[in-house]
Nucleic acid binder design. Structure first.
Lengths: 342, 342
DNA sequence: CTGTTAGCGCATTCAC
DNA sequence: GTGAATGCGCTAACAG
């Protein structure tokens, strides 16, 4: 053991972090020249830049973006609000969002909104106090007061993973109503009349259910489970659905996690998929294509949503006005073994 | 359609956001009194507070934490670095971390480190430029230069999900070496000699493998798959493992996702679990307990890691010196059906 | 190409 | 209890 665990090796510890002032002095130039050498190199001679670079090394200078942002009014941050970080659904989107923004020098501030509309207002305030250059909202902003606040801020806002007639500002998503309708149409085309639904109790899942019902044309046996949905809840849901409707032939699940649970429970009960029971999920999670049987599901391009949301924001930050402030990324049904596909 | 999609309803749009100055004027008090009424109400009379509160409402004032932090040297942010947001492993930890910090008024800034040690340095710089009040690092900081930089910053740092003899500052984690050893011991106790490993190619998984080997006392057939691991990779891994070692009796997987794939592939091949093949995962993901057969796995208390990391940081921010800067949260093997458990 | 001057919005000294 | 001055670290205007 080369070192006691509580005593880190030599740590000179900064009495005070170096400022741009220190760099300028060390380089023998003025403060603003140092600033430009780092931020606007085009305006400074090669030689000066080299001197400043050296001074940065020597002093161990790390810029203070808080101070810079105060004057320039650009914090170089974007705030993102998701219902909960552990909702797997949004992960690829958040990942791509983070990467695309990072490539442009922007950092993500993460907030959890819960599924509680009442908290939206407080959250908007909390985030706004960081003066982000953009705000990404997973889902629609429902609270009228929050919507009003967001507009007053003048900060670019992108609502994602949904569409509506009244965006706060910009939008990248798809129609959940159409998703439900499409799945119902797909079931009917297969000739399955005895259909059922296993759904999480969140807003968007409910809209998908509505779309489903609108095509079926009547109520259908439904089991609602609390968010976040999971394999365990899917197993329970199938059990309850079979009680309500023993002859159910095809089930639409509001997430692939639920669908995975339904398939698991079906296997345990000796139901053959798709001969006895067909199942369709939502989200095309990474496991969907590789389960046995593989899972038919609604595929949404999560990374594309993240990338396009980032690009809309970045365009706005550059002062541009995007031609298309509302983008429908669409969706498609990927047919696999759980509904008799390849 | 009550409103064209590109024309949001009435938006007065702020010419400039209200500042504390505006609030003070509107309330008929001085700037500093307004500041205190909001931040240190104890120092101000009830009546004044009421006036200021009203002025805040009237002006729509939202504090600018960037400006406040510049002077007070507290940004009220914590930076968190994870290899990738989509690594399910860290999600419960990040979630709890976010919540615990939010409850104390701190916001999380999220960064992705990738699995690339070379990038650590650049990342530390990027983060440090936001002047966070604390930094959470998923995994150990390996690059010596990054370690040195972190120390110089003087910012509290917590390395999580691992333990070592030489923390940069504080630590909350467990021994991956011991995890591997424990699983190997468990397999041997069951009498399984023909063992194999399916592992992701990340640092911590490799250490667990080392621990496993140290107890087994010899090399064992191993399949390494690229991170991030998934069900699909688990299926492939079992195929390859069966080629290398047709008689393999028990497999240790570096994640539950991989294990799920191994179980799927085993079912497809008609292998009975646990009679023909036993499987142990790592992480106790939410699905592990509910699969059929249920998955034996190594359970780690992810939320506890997040909570304790947050508390260490918050204590430091209050100026306290935690008695225990290195916390071992331990782990345990949860025996389920995939190894013959209940 | 470089420098001087003035703040960004707030909180920390001090005074009263 | 309240207030006036001062500056956190940096950058946007203008000048030279």
């Amino acid at each position: 053991m080369p070192n006691a665990s509580s005593t880190p090796d030599a740590a000179p510890a900064s009495p005070r972090a170096a400022t741009l002032h220190d760099v300028a002095r060390s380089a023998g130039v003025s403060l603003i020249t140092a600033s430009r050498a780092l931020g606007n190199p085009d305006l400074v001679s090669e030689k000066t830049i080299a001197k400043v670079r050296q001074a940065v090394e020597a002093t161990g200078y790390i810029p203070n973006l808080l101070a810079g942002g105060l004057k320039s009014r650009r914090s170089m941050t974007v705030a993102a609000l998701v219902p909960a970080i552990s909702v797997a659904q949004f992960l690829p989107t958040v990942q791509t969002l983070t990467e695309t923004l990072a490539a442009a020098g922007y950092q993500l501030i993460l907030g959890q909104s819960g599924y509680d509309h009442a908290r939206e207002e407080a959250l908007v305030n909390t985030l706004a106090s960081r003066r982000p250059d953009g705000i990404v909202f997973a889902g629609l902003v429902h609270s009228p007061k929050a919507r009003e606040q967001l507009r007053r801020l003048g900060t670019p806002v992108v609502e994602i993973w949904d569409l509506s007639e009244r965006p706060v500002d910009m939008m990248v998503g798809f129609s959940h109503l159409k998703v439900g309708a499409a799945v119902a149409g797909y079931f009917l085309a297969k000739g399955w009349q005895q259909v059922g639904i296993a759904t999480g109790d969140d807003q968007r899942a409910s809209v998908r259910r509505e779309g489903f019902l609108s095509v079926i044309g009547r109520e259908v046996p439904t089991v609602v489970v609390p968010a976040p949905s999971s394999l365990a809840l899917g197993r329970r849901a199938l059990g309850e659905l079979l009680q309500k409707s023993p002859g159910v032939r095809a089930i639409y699940c509001s997430s692939d996690q639920l669908a995975q649970g339904v398939l698991t429970e079906a296997a345990v009960r000796g139901l053959r998929v798709p001969q006895d029971l067909a199942v369709c999920g939502f989200g095309d999670a990474d496991f969907a294509a590789h389960m046995a049987p593989s899972l038919t599901t609604v595929q949404v391009d999560g990374p594309a949503i993240g990338r396009q949301a980032a690009e809309l924001l970045l365009a706005r930050c550059r002062g541009e006005t995007p031609a298309q402030p509302v983008i429908d990324v669409g969706f498609c049904i990927v047919e696999r073994e759980s509904t008799g596909g390849a």
